[in-house]
Design a protein around this nucleic acid. Structure first.
Length: 359
DNA sequence: AAGCCGTGGGC
DNA sequence: TGCCCAAGGCT
């Protein structure tokens, strides 16, 4: 099939199966660039279903890019807590400030300038240019990679084949309705040309698909195997003061869970401390630590984590030295007011489940 | 340029 | 249960 015929059949399929999404404009209109940008950042490596409520909440709190630029970073991280990849939230805030302060509150309307903004890479620049400004731009996300690998039966594995897939995708991107086309291919990948059990009979490109013809659609795209995840272990320290508040602290600005709030913990190593006494060297405060039964397990992108939880409660006889402990004291019923990532919510749940909620 | 960076759902 | 996957970007 010719490129223009492929694009035409894809747009026809889109017109018949268009999905209603919170950030998507009504048919025939282009969406607000702020909405498109916000949704695209949130959708990076994250499913539509997960993003939905977070998108609505952020848009409610910060209706315009100027509102977001004026927000405190802590408030943005709090609103983002649970979504993961927290560098996205930090870059989101940074980008809002650049757009508000340096671009008069308007997003650039072309890929090249969008690409310069924090948190906007090749994919997002193309997506915003196409969807918000209807510029011809070739979006290449996981969906498009899969659709192209199948349409052209590319057997070379990812990520080595990525630029080849991008070139193939570019040959089909139309000059007319490029924004709808971009969303169409991604929708197709999400609902029809799925990783497992693709619904080939429902595909507008059924007749032109080389992988389907060869009977290898479900096996594409091939991927080079990734390294095995190691397991790291550590100790989290759950410390209650005489007033029933828990000691938390803010993590460093960059790196894992950057800028987020944590239950203080020692290093996470593949060879952990052998005893509670040894682990307690890294405790945030000298106290009578006792080990809670069980472990908190969590898996990050590149390692498994097993945390044991040591707990202590300070009483009137412990003096007031705790007031100068490094961190913040938060009443346990007000934890939800802070930017606590999921792994640390698991630690909180584990501690509260083991020792109960104090008065 | 390959490793780092979360989380939840599906099977 | 363990693994795969999701509208990737940064360094």
């Amino acid at each position: 099939m010719e490129p223009d015929e492929l694009a035409r059949s894809m747009l026809g399929w889109y017109d018949r199966h268009r999905r209603v999404l919170p950030w998507r404009a009504p048919a025939g209109r282009t969406a607000d660039p702020y909405h498109v940008w916000l949704s695209e950042i949130m959708l990076q490596q994250t499913t539509v279903v997960t993003v939905g409520p977070y998108f609505q909440e952020l848009l409610r709190r910060w209706p315009t890019v100027a509102d977001l630029a004026a927000a405190d970073l802590d408030a943005v991280l709090h609103a983002w807590a649970g979504l993961g990849y927290y560098a996205r939230a930090r870059n989101l805030h940074k980008c809002a400030r650049v757009v508000a302060d340096g671009h008069g509150g308007r997003f650039p309307d072309n890929e090249q300038e969008l690409r310069q903004l924090p948190g906007i890479g090749a994919y997002t620049a193309a997506a915003v240019a196409a969807i918000a400004f209807d510029r011809r731009a070739t979006v290449l996300d996981g969906n498009v990679e899969r659709v192209m690998a199948r349409l052209f039966a590319v057997e070379e594995p990812l990520p080595a084949s990525k630029e080849k897939l991008r070139a193939l995708a570019d040959t089909i991107t139309p000059d007319r309705r490029p924004g709808d086309y971009a969303q169409a291919v991604m929708d197709l990948g999400a609902t029809v040309c799925t990783p497992r059990k693709p619904k080939c009979p429902r595909c507008p490109w059924h007749d032109g698909c080389a992988a389907r013809a060869a009977g290898i659609a479900e096996s594409l795209p091939r991927k080079t195997p990734k390294a095995e995840k190691p397991t790291r272990r550590g100790t989290a320290f759950w410390l209650l003061n005489p007033e029933g508040a828990v000691l938390l602290r803010r993590r460093p600005e960059s790196g894992l869970l950057g800028g987020m709030i944590e239950v203080p913990s020692g290093d996470w190593l593949e060879r952990p401390a052998q005893s509670l006494a040894a682990a307690s060297v890294q405790a945030p405060f000298a106290a009578s630590w006792r080990l809670l039964p069980g472990l908190v397990r969590h898996t990050f992108t590149h390692f498994h984590l097993e945390l044991q939880v040591a707990a202590a409660r300070l009483g009137a006889g412990d003096g007031d030295g705790w007031m100068r402990a490094d961190g913040i004291w938060v009443p346990v019923d007000r934890l939800s007011e802070h930017a606590v990532p999921t792994v640390m919510r698991k630690v909180v749940r584990h501690a509260l489940g083991s020792i109960g909620v104090p008065e």
